[in-house]
């Protein structure tokens, strides 16, 4: 599993670059590097469904980000400015929250099973009954469209709402003085 650790390191370096670089276009491309390494890791942990969806969604995300940046500006003018008091306050708050979060995560990581040995109490039932009950060979499709179809209905509703929000916010009418 050495390649998994390599991609994890690459992902973290790309994430640091994406948050710290001055040019916003480079930041978006670094975000794309994070997304594609996530997609490759999905293949390495035997999740091809997730890898396909992650790759196509990542391409669309980069297209939308670049569309916004190309219509506005691509220089991050806030880097290198003098720190204001609110900014220092935010950094102190972040440091405090990080320590709290690490304590909680360390305690909860003791509870969840080790990497590579899941419990699979419900999943064994789904794997055993997936083909006889639904007839589909892809267990993930069986889970999202038959056993847990209401979950997918909720997802469709959220996507519909966000599309309505985007289209309504970008209209010209409704902004008349």
């Amino acid at each position: 599993m050495i390649e998994l650790y390599l991609f994890l390191a690459f992902m973290i370096i790309a994430a640091i670059v994406a948050t710290e670089i001055k040019d916003l276009l480079s930041a978006v491309i670094s975000l794309g590097a994070v997304g594609f390494s996530v997609a490759i890791m999905f293949i390495l942990i035997q999740a091809p469904d997730l890898a396909i969806v992650q790759i196509v969604i990542e391409v669309l995300t980069i297209v939308i980000f670049i569309a916004v940046i190309s219509r506005t500006t691509h220089i991050d003018e806030t880097i290198g400015k003098k720190l204001s008091s609110t900014h220092i306050c935010a950094i102190v708050l972040y440091a405090f929250f990080t320590i709290l979060f690490l304590i909680v995560m360390f305690r909860s990581l003791q509870e969840i099973p080790d990497f590579g040995n899941p419990i699979m109490k419900i999943a064994s039932e789904y794997i055993k009954l997936g083909l006889p009950k639904t007839g589909g060979a892809n267990i993930v499709a069986d889970v999202i469209l038959d056993f847990r179809a209401l979950d997918t209905l909720g997802e469709a509703t959220v996507l519909f709402t966000s599309v309505i929000g985007v289209v309504a916010l970008m209209r010209k009418s409704g902004r008349k003085k």
Binding site: V56, L60, L145
Partner: peptide
């Protein structure tokens, strides 16, 4: 989508692409 990896989400985004 019910036999191989993929399905409605991935295929829909590819066609939008």
């Amino acid at each position: 989508g019910h036999l191989t990896p993929g399905g409605g989400f991935a295929g829909g985004v590819i066609i939008a692409g």
